[in-house]
Amino acid sequence: MSATAVPVLEGRRLTKRFQGLVSIDDVSFSLAENEVLGLIGPNGAGKTTLVNMISGTIRADHGSIFFKGQPIDHLRPFQRAHLGISRTFQVMKPFPGLSVLDNVVVGALFGTGGGETSIARARESAREWIEFTGLTHRIGQSAEALGGPDRKRLEFAKALALNPKLLLLDEVMAGLNLVEVDEVVGLVRKVRERGVSILIIEHVMKAIRHLSDRVMVLHHGEKIAEGEPSAVLSDPRVVAAYLGTRRT
């Protein structure tokens, strides 16, 4: 029972079916304090389902999720957010009618530990996160008006405003050009330096390679590989999964 060994996040034998189809099949994993775990796999592998299970928008059929050693299966999404679990959405979900600032303020007001009680202080911290993600020039605009890359930044700023201990990043780099990807990689690094543990789903392999301490690969809902990034990415089974050949 050593204190250092308790992972921030642990999933034990998670299974989820949708109308008979297995989306996540008996997957176990863990994420250590301040670690970055890359989660990759072809489309439909169940990556987003896993993130949804961790953030609490869907529940596992079997298995359990532990946050800092405590089971969180019974907690609703907002309670998990209060514990310090924050996420971005692959299909970006800014509050369309609100300004960029107000979008981020919501995160600061209701985030980890229940959030900020004063609107003024929440605004203050929201401004900082907006600056951190490089969105200051858009702060007063309506979220609807933002283009792709800025939407990604906003999604990022919103998730960070919760002041999370665990950040789940669901394809924050999809659709960005190389320069923008480098920017986001830099942001993720900076977040990590603040002591945040990160689970990152990404198709941009370069980013995964640069950022992750470990990589886990899902294919048809099963975990087919896990380990050090360069080793996993050259694993023939992983290559086969990505190229679409049948598993043997």
Binding site: P77, F78, H82, F95, D102, V106, G107, F110
Partner: peptide, 26 residues
């Protein structure tokens, strides 16, 4: 309209699921 309570309601109006994952006890 100026309070935390109001902000929670507005977040619910704009996107209830997103509000939940951002810590709003909807």
């Amino acid at each position: 309209s100026m309070s935390r309570f109001g902000m929670a309601l507005i977040a619910i109006r704009e996107d209830e699921d997103a509000a939940g994952t951002m810590g709003v006890n909807t």
